[in-house]
Design a protein around this nucleic acid. Structure first.
Lengths: 222, 222
DNA sequence: TAGATTGTTAATCGATTAACAATC
DNA sequence: TAGATTGTTAATCGATTAACAATC
Protein backbone atom coordinates (compact mmCIF):
# COMPACT_ATOMS: atom_id res chain seq x y z
CA UNK A 1 0.00 0.00 0.00
CA UNK A 2 1.22 3.45 -0.83
CA UNK A 3 0.14 6.48 1.14
CA UNK A 4 -2.59 8.54 -0.46
CA UNK A 5 -1.18 10.54 -3.35
CA UNK A 6 -1.87 14.27 -3.48
CA UNK A 7 -4.96 14.89 -5.57
CA UNK A 8 -4.39 15.25 -9.32
CA UNK A 9 -6.20 17.56 -11.61
CA UNK A 10 -5.51 21.09 -10.47
CA UNK A 11 -7.76 23.23 -12.69
CA UNK A 12 -5.98 25.05 -15.52
CA UNK A 13 -7.32 28.38 -14.31
CA UNK A 14 -5.71 27.72 -10.94
CA UNK A 15 -2.39 26.66 -12.46
CA UNK A 16 -2.32 29.93 -14.39
CA UNK A 17 -2.64 31.90 -11.16
CA UNK A 18 -0.13 29.97 -9.05
CA UNK A 19 2.87 31.82 -10.57
CA UNK A 20 1.27 35.12 -9.49
CA UNK A 21 0.79 33.94 -5.93
CA UNK A 22 4.34 32.62 -5.91
CA UNK A 23 5.73 35.94 -7.07
CA UNK A 24 3.79 37.84 -4.41
CA UNK A 25 4.92 35.41 -1.71
CA UNK A 26 8.54 35.59 -2.84
CA UNK A 27 8.36 39.36 -2.56
CA UNK A 28 6.88 39.12 0.92
CA UNK A 29 9.56 36.68 2.00
CA UNK A 30 12.24 39.04 0.68
CA UNK A 31 10.76 41.84 2.78
CA UNK A 32 10.78 39.62 5.86
CA UNK A 33 7.01 39.24 6.16
CA UNK A 34 6.46 35.96 8.03
CA UNK A 35 2.79 35.30 7.41
CA UNK A 36 -0.13 36.51 5.30
CA UNK A 37 -3.83 35.99 4.69
CA UNK A 38 -5.94 35.13 1.66
CA UNK A 39 -7.14 38.72 1.86
CA UNK A 40 -3.64 40.20 1.53
CA UNK A 41 -2.58 37.72 -1.11
CA UNK A 42 -5.70 38.48 -3.11
CA UNK A 43 -5.13 42.23 -2.98
CA UNK A 44 -1.54 41.85 -4.15
CA UNK A 45 -2.45 39.45 -6.96
CA UNK A 46 -5.50 41.39 -8.08
CA UNK A 47 -8.11 38.70 -7.41
CA UNK A 48 -10.73 37.93 -4.75
CA UNK A 49 -9.84 36.25 -1.49
CA UNK A 50 -12.32 33.43 -2.05
CA UNK A 51 -10.48 32.59 -5.25
CA UNK A 52 -7.16 32.49 -3.46
CA UNK A 53 -8.50 30.11 -0.84
CA UNK A 54 -10.14 27.90 -3.44
CA UNK A 55 -6.97 27.81 -5.54
CA UNK A 56 -4.76 26.97 -2.57
CA UNK A 57 -7.17 24.30 -1.41
CA UNK A 58 -6.29 22.26 -4.51
CA UNK A 59 -2.69 22.01 -3.32
CA UNK A 60 -3.47 20.89 0.19
CA UNK A 61 -4.30 22.52 3.50
CA UNK A 62 -1.36 24.77 4.15
CA UNK A 63 -3.20 27.53 6.03
CA UNK A 64 -4.18 27.82 9.66
CA UNK A 65 -7.74 28.85 10.45
CA UNK A 66 -7.90 32.17 12.25
CA UNK A 67 -4.22 32.82 11.50
CA UNK A 68 -3.42 32.68 7.79
CA UNK A 69 -0.55 31.23 5.78
CA UNK A 70 3.16 30.97 6.55
CA UNK A 71 4.77 32.89 3.68
CA UNK A 72 7.90 30.77 3.23
CA UNK A 73 6.11 27.47 3.60
CA UNK A 74 3.37 28.38 1.15
CA UNK A 75 5.90 29.71 -1.35
CA UNK A 76 7.79 26.45 -1.11
CA UNK A 77 4.65 24.38 -1.60
CA UNK A 78 3.56 26.35 -4.66
CA UNK A 79 7.06 26.21 -6.17
CA UNK A 80 7.11 22.46 -5.61
CA UNK A 81 3.68 22.05 -7.16
CA UNK A 82 4.73 24.07 -10.20
CA UNK A 83 7.74 21.84 -10.68
CA UNK A 84 10.21 24.54 -9.74
CA UNK A 85 11.95 22.39 -7.16
CA UNK A 86 14.32 21.76 -10.03
CA UNK A 87 15.84 23.97 -12.71
CA UNK A 88 14.36 23.97 -16.19
CA UNK A 89 16.61 24.26 -19.22
CA UNK A 90 15.42 26.72 -21.86
CA UNK A 91 16.44 27.25 -25.47
CA UNK A 92 15.53 30.39 -27.40
CA UNK A 93 15.37 30.38 -31.19
CA UNK A 94 15.54 33.68 -33.03
CA UNK A 95 18.02 36.36 -31.99
CA UNK A 96 16.24 39.43 -33.27
CA UNK A 97 15.19 42.21 -30.94
CA UNK A 98 12.74 40.05 -29.09
CA UNK A 99 15.00 37.04 -28.73
CA UNK A 100 17.76 39.24 -27.37
CA UNK A 101 15.34 40.85 -24.92
CA UNK A 102 14.18 37.46 -23.69
CA UNK A 103 17.74 36.17 -23.38
CA UNK A 104 18.71 39.21 -21.35
CA UNK A 105 15.64 39.03 -19.10
CA UNK A 106 17.04 38.46 -15.63
CA UNK A 107 13.76 37.25 -14.20
CA UNK A 108 14.34 33.88 -15.84
CA UNK A 109 17.34 32.53 -13.98
CA UNK A 110 15.92 34.12 -10.88
CA UNK A 111 12.88 31.89 -11.19
CA UNK A 112 14.56 28.62 -11.92
CA UNK A 113 14.96 28.76 -15.68
CA UNK A 114 18.40 28.25 -17.15
CA UNK A 115 19.13 29.27 -20.72
CA UNK A 116 21.19 26.47 -22.22
CA UNK A 117 21.14 27.59 -25.81
CA UNK A 118 20.48 30.50 -28.15
CA UNK A 119 19.93 29.79 -31.83
CA UNK A 120 19.56 31.67 -35.06
CA UNK A 121 19.21 30.72 -38.68
CA UNK A 122 21.47 33.56 -39.84
CA UNK A 123 25.18 32.51 -40.18
CA UNK A 124 26.19 36.12 -39.54
CA UNK A 125 24.61 35.91 -36.10
CA UNK A 126 26.21 32.61 -35.14
CA UNK A 127 29.06 33.03 -32.69
CA UNK A 128 27.93 36.42 -31.44
CA UNK A 129 27.52 36.76 -27.70
CA UNK A 130 24.03 37.50 -26.38
CA UNK A 131 23.68 37.71 -22.61
CA UNK A 132 27.16 36.13 -22.42
CA UNK A 133 26.00 33.09 -24.37
CA UNK A 134 27.32 32.39 -27.88
CA UNK A 135 24.58 32.10 -30.49
CA UNK A 136 24.58 28.75 -32.25
CA UNK A 137 23.30 27.69 -35.66
CA UNK A 138 20.15 25.64 -36.07
CA UNK A 139 22.21 22.52 -36.76
CA UNK A 140 23.37 22.56 -33.15
CA UNK A 141 19.81 22.40 -31.81
CA UNK A 142 19.37 18.61 -31.65
CA UNK A 143 22.50 18.17 -29.58
CA UNK A 144 21.53 20.79 -27.02
CA UNK A 145 17.89 19.78 -26.83
CA UNK A 146 18.81 16.17 -26.18
CA UNK A 147 19.52 17.21 -22.60
CA UNK A 148 16.03 16.18 -21.51
CA UNK A 149 13.05 18.29 -20.47
CA UNK A 150 13.98 21.37 -22.44
CA UNK A 151 11.48 24.21 -22.83
CA UNK A 152 11.66 25.84 -26.26
CA UNK A 153 10.96 29.50 -27.00
CA UNK A 154 10.22 30.73 -30.53
CA UNK A 155 11.18 34.39 -31.00
CA UNK A 156 11.36 34.52 -34.79
CA UNK A 157 9.19 36.37 -37.32
CA UNK A 158 5.91 34.70 -38.24
CA UNK A 159 7.32 33.28 -41.49
CA UNK A 160 9.89 31.13 -39.69
CA UNK A 161 7.71 29.99 -36.80
CA UNK A 162 6.52 26.76 -38.41
CA UNK A 163 10.01 25.70 -39.50
CA UNK A 164 11.39 26.44 -36.06
CA UNK A 165 8.55 24.56 -34.38
CA UNK A 166 9.31 21.59 -36.64
CA UNK A 167 12.99 21.79 -35.77
CA UNK A 168 12.25 21.92 -32.05
CA UNK A 169 9.89 18.95 -32.28
CA UNK A 170 12.44 16.97 -34.31
CA UNK A 171 15.01 17.74 -31.65
CA UNK A 172 12.71 16.24 -29.04
CA UNK A 173 11.32 19.39 -27.45
CA UNK A 174 7.72 18.86 -26.30
CA UNK A 175 7.03 22.18 -24.53
CA UNK A 176 7.09 25.29 -26.70
CA UNK A 177 6.34 28.93 -26.00
CA UNK A 178 5.68 30.85 -29.20
CA UNK A 179 6.13 34.62 -29.43
CA UNK A 180 5.72 34.73 -33.19
CA UNK A 181 2.30 35.71 -34.55
CA UNK A 182 0.35 32.68 -35.64
CA UNK A 183 -0.06 29.13 -34.43
CA UNK A 184 2.40 26.59 -35.83
CA UNK A 185 1.06 23.08 -36.07
CA UNK A 186 2.63 20.56 -33.71
CA UNK A 187 1.98 16.88 -32.96
CA UNK A 188 -0.54 16.07 -30.24
CA UNK A 189 2.13 15.13 -27.71
CA UNK A 190 3.69 18.61 -27.91
CA UNK A 191 2.29 21.49 -25.86
CA UNK A 192 2.44 24.87 -27.53
CA UNK A 193 1.50 28.07 -25.72
CA UNK A 194 1.57 31.43 -27.38
CA UNK A 195 2.05 35.08 -26.51
CA UNK A 196 1.27 37.74 -29.09
CA UNK A 197 1.62 41.46 -28.51
CA UNK A 198 -0.78 42.40 -31.29
CA UNK A 199 -3.44 40.02 -29.98
CA UNK A 200 -3.23 41.54 -26.53
CA UNK A 201 -3.50 45.05 -27.92
CA UNK A 202 -6.46 44.05 -30.07
CA UNK A 203 -8.28 42.75 -27.01
CA UNK A 204 -7.48 45.98 -25.16
CA UNK A 205 -8.71 48.02 -28.11
CA UNK A 206 -11.96 46.06 -28.25
CA UNK A 207 -12.71 46.65 -24.60
CA UNK A 208 -11.67 50.29 -24.81
CA UNK A 209 -14.00 50.84 -27.74
CA UNK A 210 -16.86 49.27 -25.82
CA UNK A 211 -16.14 51.46 -22.80
CA UNK A 212 -15.68 54.77 -24.54
CA UNK A 213 -18.10 54.35 -27.39
CA UNK A 214 -15.58 55.63 -29.92
CA UNK A 215 -16.08 52.65 -32.15
CA UNK A 216 -17.78 52.26 -35.47
CA UNK A 217 -21.41 52.39 -34.40
CA UNK A 218 -22.89 55.82 -34.36
CA UNK A 219 -24.35 56.92 -31.08
CA UNK A 220 -28.12 56.54 -31.34
CA UNK A 221 -29.73 59.85 -30.51
CA UNK A 222 -32.69 59.65 -28.13
CA UNK B 1 -37.21 53.79 -34.09
CA UNK B 2 -33.67 52.75 -34.75
CA UNK B 3 -32.87 49.51 -36.51
CA UNK B 4 -31.95 46.62 -34.30
CA UNK B 5 -28.43 47.08 -32.97
CA UNK B 6 -25.99 44.17 -33.30
CA UNK B 7 -26.11 42.09 -30.14
CA UNK B 8 -23.79 43.21 -27.36
CA UNK B 9 -21.94 40.97 -25.01
CA UNK B 10 -19.54 38.92 -27.06
CA UNK B 11 -18.03 36.43 -24.59
CA UNK B 12 -14.49 37.22 -23.43
CA UNK B 13 -13.28 33.83 -24.60
CA UNK B 14 -14.55 34.63 -28.07
CA UNK B 15 -13.00 38.10 -28.12
CA UNK B 16 -9.66 36.53 -27.25
CA UNK B 17 -9.88 34.27 -30.31
CA UNK B 18 -11.06 36.84 -32.84
CA UNK B 19 -7.53 38.23 -33.39
CA UNK B 20 -6.40 34.71 -34.32
CA UNK B 21 -9.16 34.26 -36.85
CA UNK B 22 -8.42 37.69 -38.25
CA UNK B 23 -4.74 36.89 -38.69
CA UNK B 24 -5.53 33.63 -40.47
CA UNK B 25 -8.05 35.36 -42.73
CA UNK B 26 -5.62 38.17 -43.53
CA UNK B 27 -3.07 35.58 -44.54
CA UNK B 28 -5.60 33.80 -46.75
CA UNK B 29 -6.60 37.08 -48.39
CA UNK B 30 -2.94 37.86 -49.07
CA UNK B 31 -2.58 34.48 -50.78
CA UNK B 32 -5.65 35.19 -52.89
CA UNK B 33 -7.92 32.60 -51.28
CA UNK B 34 -11.48 33.85 -51.86
CA UNK B 35 -13.48 31.71 -49.44
CA UNK B 36 -13.01 29.31 -46.57
CA UNK B 37 -14.89 27.05 -44.16
CA UNK B 38 -15.13 26.77 -40.41
CA UNK B 39 -13.16 23.56 -40.82
CA UNK B 40 -10.22 25.26 -42.54
CA UNK B 41 -10.29 28.24 -40.23
CA UNK B 42 -10.32 25.94 -37.23
CA UNK B 43 -7.35 23.95 -38.47
CA UNK B 44 -5.31 27.09 -39.08
CA UNK B 45 -6.21 28.62 -35.71
CA UNK B 46 -5.74 25.42 -33.76
CA UNK B 47 -9.31 25.05 -32.47
CA UNK B 48 -12.39 22.99 -33.33
CA UNK B 49 -14.73 23.94 -36.14
CA UNK B 50 -17.75 24.05 -33.84
CA UNK B 51 -15.97 26.68 -31.78
CA UNK B 52 -15.26 28.77 -34.86
CA UNK B 53 -18.90 28.69 -35.91
CA UNK B 54 -20.11 29.50 -32.42
CA UNK B 55 -17.64 32.38 -32.11
CA UNK B 56 -18.57 33.83 -35.48
CA UNK B 57 -22.28 33.50 -34.71
CA UNK B 58 -21.88 36.18 -32.03
CA UNK B 59 -20.87 38.70 -34.69
CA UNK B 60 -23.73 38.02 -37.05
CA UNK B 61 -24.49 35.56 -39.85
CA UNK B 62 -21.69 36.12 -42.32
CA UNK B 63 -21.45 32.58 -43.65
CA UNK B 64 -23.41 30.81 -46.34
CA UNK B 65 -24.74 27.33 -45.58
CA UNK B 66 -23.23 24.71 -47.80
CA UNK B 67 -20.60 27.15 -49.04
CA UNK B 68 -18.58 28.73 -46.24
CA UNK B 69 -17.32 32.25 -45.58
CA UNK B 70 -16.06 34.95 -47.91
CA UNK B 71 -12.52 35.59 -46.68
CA UNK B 72 -12.35 39.33 -47.28
CA UNK B 73 -15.82 40.04 -46.00
CA UNK B 74 -15.33 38.01 -42.82
CA UNK B 75 -11.94 39.63 -42.20
CA UNK B 76 -13.52 43.05 -42.54
CA UNK B 77 -16.34 42.16 -40.16
CA UNK B 78 -13.98 40.84 -37.50
CA UNK B 79 -11.69 43.84 -37.84
CA UNK B 80 -14.66 46.14 -37.49
CA UNK B 81 -15.93 44.26 -34.46
CA UNK B 82 -12.49 44.45 -32.83
CA UNK B 83 -12.43 48.19 -33.32
CA UNK B 84 -9.68 48.03 -35.93
CA UNK B 85 -11.60 50.08 -38.43
CA UNK B 86 -9.57 52.90 -36.95
CA UNK B 87 -5.94 53.24 -35.92
CA UNK B 88 -5.03 52.97 -32.25
CA UNK B 89 -2.27 55.15 -30.81
CA UNK B 90 0.18 53.30 -28.54
CA UNK B 91 2.77 54.57 -26.07
CA UNK B 92 5.53 52.35 -24.73
CA UNK B 93 7.22 53.13 -21.43
CA UNK B 94 10.61 51.57 -20.70
CA UNK B 95 13.29 51.44 -23.37
CA UNK B 96 15.29 48.47 -22.12
CA UNK B 97 15.73 45.39 -24.27
CA UNK B 98 12.06 44.53 -24.20
CA UNK B 99 10.79 48.04 -24.88
CA UNK B 100 13.12 48.32 -27.85
CA UNK B 101 11.97 44.97 -29.17
CA UNK B 102 8.33 45.98 -28.89
CA UNK B 103 8.98 49.35 -30.54
CA UNK B 104 10.73 47.64 -33.43
CA UNK B 105 8.05 44.97 -33.84
CA UNK B 106 6.68 45.57 -37.32
CA UNK B 107 3.51 43.59 -36.70
CA UNK B 108 2.07 46.54 -34.82
CA UNK B 109 1.68 49.17 -37.51
CA UNK B 110 0.70 46.37 -39.85
CA UNK B 111 -2.30 45.66 -37.65
CA UNK B 112 -3.52 49.16 -37.05
CA UNK B 113 -1.45 50.22 -34.07
CA UNK B 114 0.56 53.41 -34.33
CA UNK B 115 3.35 54.13 -31.84
CA UNK B 116 3.00 57.79 -30.92
CA UNK B 117 5.46 57.88 -28.07
CA UNK B 118 8.39 56.07 -26.46
CA UNK B 119 9.33 56.99 -22.91
CA UNK B 120 12.06 56.29 -20.42
CA UNK B 121 12.89 57.47 -16.97
CA UNK B 122 16.64 57.60 -17.68
CA UNK B 123 17.83 61.04 -18.92
CA UNK B 124 20.69 59.34 -20.76
CA UNK B 125 18.13 57.52 -22.89
CA UNK B 126 16.04 60.58 -23.71
CA UNK B 127 16.60 61.83 -27.24
CA UNK B 128 17.94 58.53 -28.54
CA UNK B 129 16.24 57.15 -31.61
CA UNK B 130 14.45 53.81 -31.27
CA UNK B 131 12.66 52.54 -34.35
CA UNK B 132 13.09 56.04 -35.79
CA UNK B 133 11.21 57.60 -32.88
CA UNK B 134 13.01 59.83 -30.37
CA UNK B 135 12.69 58.62 -26.78
CA UNK B 136 11.04 61.17 -24.50
CA UNK B 137 11.25 61.70 -20.75
CA UNK B 138 8.39 60.82 -18.45
CA UNK B 139 7.43 64.48 -18.12
CA UNK B 140 6.33 64.46 -21.76
CA UNK B 141 3.85 61.63 -21.17
CA UNK B 142 0.77 63.69 -20.23
CA UNK B 143 0.99 65.79 -23.38
CA UNK B 144 1.25 62.79 -25.69
CA UNK B 145 -1.36 60.71 -23.89
CA UNK B 146 -3.88 63.56 -24.06
CA UNK B 147 -4.46 62.55 -27.68
CA UNK B 148 -7.42 60.41 -26.73
CA UNK B 149 -7.81 56.65 -26.69
CA UNK B 150 -4.18 55.82 -26.14
CA UNK B 151 -3.13 52.26 -25.29
CA UNK B 152 -0.24 52.15 -22.81
CA UNK B 153 2.46 49.47 -22.71
CA UNK B 154 4.66 48.97 -19.64
CA UNK B 155 8.04 47.46 -20.53
CA UNK B 156 10.01 48.39 -17.42
CA UNK B 157 11.50 46.22 -14.69
CA UNK B 158 9.10 45.09 -11.96
CA UNK B 159 10.27 47.78 -9.54
CA UNK B 160 9.11 50.62 -11.77
CA UNK B 161 5.85 49.09 -12.93
CA UNK B 162 3.64 50.65 -10.26
CA UNK B 163 5.09 54.13 -10.75
CA UNK B 164 4.69 53.87 -14.50
CA UNK B 165 1.12 52.61 -14.15
CA UNK B 166 0.37 55.59 -11.90
CA UNK B 167 1.92 57.97 -14.43
CA UNK B 168 -0.10 56.45 -17.27
CA UNK B 169 -3.34 56.67 -15.30
CA UNK B 170 -2.58 60.28 -14.31
CA UNK B 171 -2.01 61.05 -17.97
CA UNK B 172 -5.47 59.72 -18.75
CA UNK B 173 -4.57 56.30 -20.18
CA UNK B 174 -7.26 53.73 -19.34
CA UNK B 175 -6.00 50.69 -21.27
CA UNK B 176 -2.68 49.26 -20.16
CA UNK B 177 -0.69 46.22 -21.24
CA UNK B 178 1.90 45.24 -18.64
CA UNK B 179 5.00 43.22 -19.53
CA UNK B 180 6.66 43.73 -16.16
CA UNK B 181 6.35 40.90 -13.63
CA UNK B 182 3.67 41.67 -11.07
CA UNK B 183 0.30 43.37 -11.09
CA UNK B 184 0.30 47.13 -10.48
CA UNK B 185 -2.82 48.46 -8.81
CA UNK B 186 -5.02 50.66 -11.02
CA UNK B 187 -8.40 52.35 -10.51
CA UNK B 188 -11.51 50.41 -11.44
CA UNK B 189 -12.09 52.36 -14.64
CA UNK B 190 -8.68 51.32 -15.99
CA UNK B 191 -8.20 47.97 -17.73
CA UNK B 192 -4.87 46.30 -17.16
CA UNK B 193 -3.83 43.14 -18.98
CA UNK B 194 -0.53 41.44 -18.39
CA UNK B 195 1.97 39.27 -20.20
CA UNK B 196 4.75 37.60 -18.26
CA UNK B 197 7.39 35.35 -19.79
CA UNK B 198 8.22 33.64 -16.52
CA UNK B 199 4.56 32.89 -15.81
CA UNK B 200 4.15 31.27 -19.21
CA UNK B 201 7.26 29.17 -18.74
CA UNK B 202 6.10 28.12 -15.27
CA UNK B 203 2.79 26.92 -16.70
CA UNK B 204 4.68 25.00 -19.42
CA UNK B 205 6.97 23.48 -16.82
CA UNK B 206 4.01 22.38 -14.72
CA UNK B 207 2.34 20.61 -17.61
CA UNK B 208 5.61 19.11 -18.76
CA UNK B 209 6.25 17.73 -15.31
CA UNK B 210 2.80 16.18 -15.23
CA UNK B 211 3.32 14.61 -18.65
CA UNK B 212 6.78 13.23 -18.20
CA UNK B 213 6.63 12.34 -14.54
CA UNK B 214 10.00 13.95 -13.87
CA UNK B 215 8.58 15.96 -11.02
CA UNK B 216 8.95 15.60 -7.32
CA UNK B 217 6.66 12.66 -6.76
CA UNK B 218 8.28 9.30 -6.99
CA UNK B 219 6.83 6.86 -9.46
CA UNK B 220 4.74 4.35 -7.51
CA UNK B 221 5.85 0.84 -8.38
CA UNK B 222 3.05 -1.64 -9.11
C1' DT C 1 -31.57 16.95 -56.49
C1' DA C 2 -27.48 15.48 -53.71
C1' DG C 3 -23.79 17.13 -51.15
C1' DA C 4 -21.89 20.37 -48.21
C1' DT C 5 -21.62 23.45 -44.50
C1' DT C 6 -23.68 26.78 -41.64
C1' DG C 7 -26.07 28.53 -37.37
C1' DT C 8 -28.20 26.96 -33.27
C1' DT C 9 -29.64 23.93 -29.78
C1' DA C 10 -29.01 21.47 -25.62
C1' DA C 11 -26.11 18.90 -22.81
C1' DT C 12 -21.84 18.94 -20.42
C1' DC C 13 -18.05 20.71 -18.37
C1' DG C 14 -15.25 23.95 -15.82
C1' DA C 15 -14.68 28.38 -13.17
C1' DT C 16 -16.34 31.82 -10.03
C1' DT C 17 -18.48 33.55 -6.05
C1' DA C 18 -20.68 34.20 -1.61
C1' DA C 19 -21.65 32.30 2.48
C1' DC C 20 -20.56 29.89 6.57
C1' DA C 21 -19.29 26.03 9.56
C1' DA C 22 -14.96 24.62 11.32
C1' DT C 23 -11.34 25.79 14.16
C1' DC C 24 -7.09 28.10 15.51
C1' DT D 1 -13.45 32.96 25.46
C1' DA D 2 -13.89 36.23 21.49
C1' DG D 3 -12.10 37.36 17.16
C1' DA D 4 -10.21 36.04 13.00
C1' DT D 5 -9.57 33.41 9.01
C1' DT D 6 -9.48 29.11 6.71
C1' DG D 7 -11.41 25.27 3.81
C1' DT D 8 -15.55 23.74 1.72
C1' DT D 9 -20.13 23.83 0.13
C1' DA D 10 -23.58 24.90 -3.13
C1' DA D 11 -25.38 28.01 -6.29
C1' DT D 12 -24.41 30.56 -10.34
C1' DC D 13 -22.23 31.73 -14.27
C1' DG D 14 -19.68 31.16 -18.54
C1' DA D 15 -17.38 28.16 -22.08
C1' DT D 16 -17.13 24.02 -24.77
C1' DT D 17 -18.79 20.41 -27.55
C1' DA D 18 -21.46 17.32 -30.44
C1' DA D 19 -25.25 16.86 -33.01
C1' DC D 20 -28.43 18.22 -36.44
C1' DA D 21 -32.06 20.89 -38.69
C1' DA D 22 -31.82 24.57 -41.92
C1' DT D 23 -30.51 25.78 -46.32
C1' DC D 24 -27.39 27.06 -50.02
Amino acid sequence: MSTALPRRGIPDATVARLPDYLRVLTGMAARGIPSTSSQQLAAAAGVRSAKVRKDLSYLGTYGVRGVGYDVEHLAFQIATELGLARDWPVVIVGMGNLGRALAAYGGLSQRGFRIIGLFDHDPAMVGQLVADIPVAGMDALPGVAATGDVLGVIATPAESAQAVADALVSAGVTSILNFAPGTPGVPAHVELRKVDLATELQILAFHKMRRSGTGHWAQVAP
